[in-house]
Design a protein around this nucleic acid. Structure first.
Lengths: 245, 245
DNA sequence: TGTACATCAGTGAACGCGCGTTCACTGATGTAC
DNA sequence: TGTACATCAGTGAACGCGCGTTCACTGATGTAC
């Protein structure tokens, strides 16, 4: 009578095949999460698979468990992307930059999962999401630590990583929540810009903080000094990176 | 019988005094927004004032209008803070830095309002919140434009402002959603760090992009060149700023 | 100064919705003898 | 080879909750005459 509108009624699973339903529920839940016009409800997930609502409780204790499982599935993907970004560049500063770009690019591609783990107000109270956030920070901290070891940055790697992360996160968060702002067309280009801005900014700022100058400067002095610095870079055997290394 | 538990029953307003209820409703709604243990519902707002639920509809068309009104009230405060940060510093680069620090500091103090306008998934679809976000960008763009005019930065002010904003926003957003991360105790110190990192990073990066060097560098070359640049700054008449100007 | 009337700031009770969740059940699948 | 039985993947119907919202009303306040 009240058969699901979105899907044909599925065949009942064979004896040992029960757990396959779990996988199907996760898939449908993921689809719902990606569709801004539909809500992720227990009822919608069940009917999407072609099953009645109570069946969901055969595999998930409650709604939260289901939602969390959906999101954490995607975060494994980010972890592996960060890992490969880190290991595919021998040079610490280049590795950090590519790690940042990979992070931003993943975040923009997985907006709903990103939103749930890093933007939801209650995210900090959920152990699984805390863990996902923590692991993110650890990858970044590792990358920054290598830069500190190579003496291109100075200071506490974890604190610097929090600063870098803020810059990357902000771009993803702002773009996802306010797509109507005058963003440039190329999603990743601004991500690259921000990753480089944060990297270069951190490198220069931590040096200045390690040996603070006596007086406050003006814009004119900043400009003049930066010009000289860039000129210096051009004379160096290996000058600063172009946008694509 | 079912008198409100949270407040004494108020006296009925006199003839012309009707609109005063609106103000009281906004105040209670604000309190509810700030209390993470209570939800902002029409019922709770009404009972907080000491009035029955339908009375709320005398002043607000629906719940959304009420919530939006509460939030936008606070954003006026941010606008004035940004304005005074901008006008209290003659030097463009210093003004930008203080604008950033003021922004972060306000965001951390007004987490719920910040969350609703800049973090909520549907924020980009609400005209009022779009406007608030847009005005934020405009203040930042104005500050960056002054830096571009003073030649301490190069490029499109709005695009650079989006990058700067991302960095500032990310810190507020991350800290608000994940307070359990290993943040330093001083809220504003890291905000200052990020504002400076983004400013200096943008200034240096836009110079490098305006005159890109021929080859990709290594961390060692970055380190050596930045050392020379900082040495240069120390020789300058007005070197880089200390954390407190 | 008194009285009929309009206004306006509220009230009280209820509606209907969609949600997460529970409970007693069913009927196909495999297994023991 | 047939039959009784345990298992297990589901079903169907309902509960109860809190919410936003609506509707017909009331009773104090001020005003016209």
């Amino acid at each position: 009578m009240s058969s699901p509108a979105t899907s044909t009624r599925r065949r009942r699973a064979a004896r040992g095949e029960g757990p396959r339903l779990r996988e199907q529920l996760l898939n449908v839940a993921q689809e719902l999460l990606l569709d801004p016009h539909r809500d992720l409800t227990i009822r919608a997930v069940a009917s999407g698979v072609g099953v009645t609502t109570p069946s969901v409780y055969l595999h998930f204790a409650d709604k939260d468990s289901l939602v969390e499982a959906v999101c954490l599935q995607a975060w494994d993907d980010l972890r592996s992307r960060m890992e490969s970004a880190l290991s595919s560049h021998d040079d610490p500063f280049q590795a950090l930059r590519h790690l940042g770009a990979a992070y931003v690019s993943w975040g923009l591609e997985h907006a709903p999962q990103y939103q749930l783990v890093l933007l939801a107000p209650e995210a900090g109270e959920r152990p699984q999401r805390r863990l996902a956030a923590r692991q993110c920070l650890e990858y970044l901290t590792a990358a920054v630590a290598r830069c500190v070891k190579a003496e291109v940055m100075r200071g506490d790697p974890q604190e610097l990583a929090l600063g870098m992360w803020s810059a990357l996160h902000g771009y993803v968060a702002l773009r996802v929540a306010h797509p109507e702002l005058p963003w440039p067309d190329d999603l990743d280009a601004l991500g690259e810009h921000i990753a480089r801005m944060a990297g270069i900014g951190t490198a220069l700022l931590t040096r200045i903080e390690a040996s603070p100058p006596p007086r406050a400067p003006s814009s004119a002095h900043y400009a003049a000094t930066l010009d000289e610095a860039v000129a210096l870079l051009h004379q160096a055997e290996h000058p600063f990176s172009t946008p694509d290394s």
